[in-house]
Simulated assay, not measured.
Amino acid sequence: MSSHHRVDDRHLKNISSELAAHGLILRGGFAFGGGEAVPESPEGRPAKSVLLVGQAGAAPWPHFMAWRRRQPQNLQNPLDTWSREVIDGISARFGASAVYPSDKPYQPFQQWAMRAEGLKPSPLGILMHPQYGLWHAYRGALLFADEIPIQGAHDPIHLCDLCVGKPCLKSCPVDAYSADGFAYQSCLAHARGPQGGPCRTGGCLDRNACPYGADYRYPAEVQAFHMASFAGV
């Protein structure tokens, strides 16, 4: 498909099918407004539309691990590398260009996600999804030269507004999350230290304390992988 062809519903279904083969899903999208500072489309002009690519729960994990076993043991940033390999291939087949959360200059992925799916941040900063809770992620985005016929975000319920006890703010031993924001250095020191074993093996205690989206909670091995990446251990 050449980049000057419009992306219609059939193409959206085909993109979704190709992503599903890797455990990934489309996470909504939108058309950029006039005058916005936006990245370039494949044609070198400002993109007109964006589709977000991500995951619900740990669905990509088996696909990623099968790929990982074929890579050098000392590969840096393997999950990002896998995501790029998968999404770059799909973007090329559908006349898009791909951008990623770790790319510089950084794109406003969280703002894009809020706009595409109508989500709001939890007290932990992670966007709260009405079905997936805190157990979801964005892996990249596809930029197109044309507008895409995708349904705009509705106004989903924000589960954090219904949560009275806020257990996500009461489970961390060093109170890494509070009204003052995220105490990055305290969290990092604890995760690396002798008392941080439960965090290293099972993931963030505050995140795991959230009662929503439990069916999508990442398995312990997935949480340990992400914690090791964060803490450098």
Rank of each mutant, 00 (worst) to 15 (best):
D80P: 12
S102Y: 08
V86C: 08
D155F: 06
G232W: 12
P101S: 12
L143M: 02
Q55D: 01
L52M: 11
Q185T: 11
I148L: 14
R200V: 02
D88Q: 09
A231R: 00
S2R: 14
P39V: 04
Y132F: 13
F30Y: 15
H136Y: 10
D175Q: 14
Y212S: 00
G118V: 08
P194F: 03
Q55K: 01
S16N: 05
H226F: 12
S49G: 06
P101M: 07
V99C: 11
D215P: 05
G28H: 11
T201I: 00
E36I: 10
E147K: 12
D146M: 04
A228T: 01
V164Y: 09
L79W: 10
Q185N: 13
L127F: 11
R217K: 05
C199Y: 00
D180S: 14
P42R: 06
G28T: 06
L205F: 01
R93W: 10
E18Y: 04
A31D: 09
K166C: 03
Q195C: 01
F109G: 07
E147H: 08
G35N: 15
L26G: 06
L52C: 08
M1E: 14
G181V: 03
E36C: 04
H5R: 15
K104C: 07
L159F: 02
R69H: 13
R68V: 13
S102W: 12
L19S: 01
P194Y: 03
K13I: 10
K48M: 10
D215I: 07
T81S: 15
R27C: 05
H129Y: 12
A220W: 00
G232C: 06
S97N: 02
K48S: 01
R84G: 15
Q223M: 05
R69S: 15
Q55T: 11
P78M: 08
M227L: 05
S102V: 15
M1G: 13
L143P: 01
A209K: 11
C210K: 00
G33Y: 06
S171K: 03
G140F: 08
G213D: 03
G133S: 04
S229V: 13
E36Y: 10
W135L: 02
L162P: 00
P60N: 02
Q185V: 07
A37W: 07
V38C: 08
C160K: 08
A66Y: 01
D175F: 06
C210G: 10
A191K: 01
L143E: 01
E85K: 12
D161C: 04
A56C: 12
D161F: 09
A20P: 02
G213S: 14
A96S: 07
C199R: 01
V233H: 11
R139M: 13
S229M: 14
A141Q: 05
D180C: 03
G28A: 06
L24A: 00
L52Q: 07
